[in-house]
């Protein structure tokens, strides 16, 4: 089985968000870039599956310019076998999915995080599945291989399901897919330098959305404090003033 893990290059989740050019663009000065947290969990599960057998190849793919390569190198250090970077800026979900569709055809399982932590699109995985006209399963919190067959755990409202699916398939994964993201070991980092990071030219793709402007949320009013021994008053305020109880 061959696995493709889609990797989004995002600002570290502790980044203080600022905008520039009259609030029309994200200000990336001084920003640390990381593997999107859900993509990192997806990759971790892919590596675990390879270790238990039944997986012959893990490729990671990213749409972005050369500045995203350290993120792909990190993915290689975590345990991917090779990497593909499609050499164009990621601007829009449809554009990104179109690019990925050009390299995703030979894989049995494609894994994508539920969303990227920057623009929160939740779109690329589903779009890619439709472009390839293959199955997709969202809210996947577990993947196992039994007798060569993929079994997914899917979270549904109020519970979970075990599913079998036709392949190839896009699994859109969320919390639970792996316990913790795997930290690259020194050996992995050394090996990653020798692994192939293929740069491919983009295909022609249309942008169907564009950012017009950004804004920061309005500042909240000061928190109304209640004394520790007067929690009754808190309940009264929630009931009578905020009217939420």
């Amino acid at each position: 089985m061959k696995i493709l893990v889609l990797i989004s290059n995002v600002p570290d989740t502790t980044t203080k968000i600022r905008f520039k050019s009259d609030n029309t663009a994200f200000d990336d000065a001084g920003v640390q870039w990381i593997i999107n947290p859900w993509d990192e969990l997806a990759l971790t599960r892919a590596v675990e599956l390879k270790e238990t057998g039944g997986v012959s190849l893990i490729t990671v793919a990213n749409v972005g310019n050369a500045s995203t390569e350290p993120t792909l190198r990190k993915a290689l250090a975590v345990g991917a076998d090779d990497a593909i970077r499609i050499d164009v800026e990621a601007r829009d979900a449809f554009e990104v999915a179109t690019q990925l569709a050009s390299v995703a055809k030979d894989y049995d399982l494609i894994m994508a995080g539920i969303e990227a932590s920057d623009y929160n699109g939740s779109a690329v995985g589903g779009m890619l599945a439709e472009l390839l006209d293959i199955a997709s399963v969202s809210s996947v919190s577990g993947i196992n291989i039994e007798n060569g067959q993929l079994l997914f755990n899917r979270e549904i409202d109020g519970g979970s399901q075990v599913l079998s699916v036709t392949t190839p398939v896009v699994a859109i994964v969320q919390k639970g897919i792996a316990k913790e993201p795997r930290i690259p070991a020194m050996r992995g980092i050394m090996m990653a330098r020798k692994k192939e990071l293929k740069v491919t030219a983009p295909v022609s793709a249309e942008d169907r959305t564009s950012f017009v402007r950004f804004e920061l949320p309005p500042k909240k009013a000061a928190c109304k404090m209640v004394a520790e021994d007067n929690a009754k008053e808190l309940v009264r305020l929630l009931h009578e003033e905020a009217k939420v109880l």
Partner: peptide, 22 residues
């Protein structure tokens, strides 16, 4: 939500539509 996020991207591609989520 879970289901809407799963379906909307597929629907958008098939209709050649533009998608915005959330």
């Amino acid at each position: 939500n879970n289901l809407g996020k799963a379906l909307a991207p597929r629907v958008a591609v098939r209709l050649q539509a533009g998608l915005e989520t959330g």
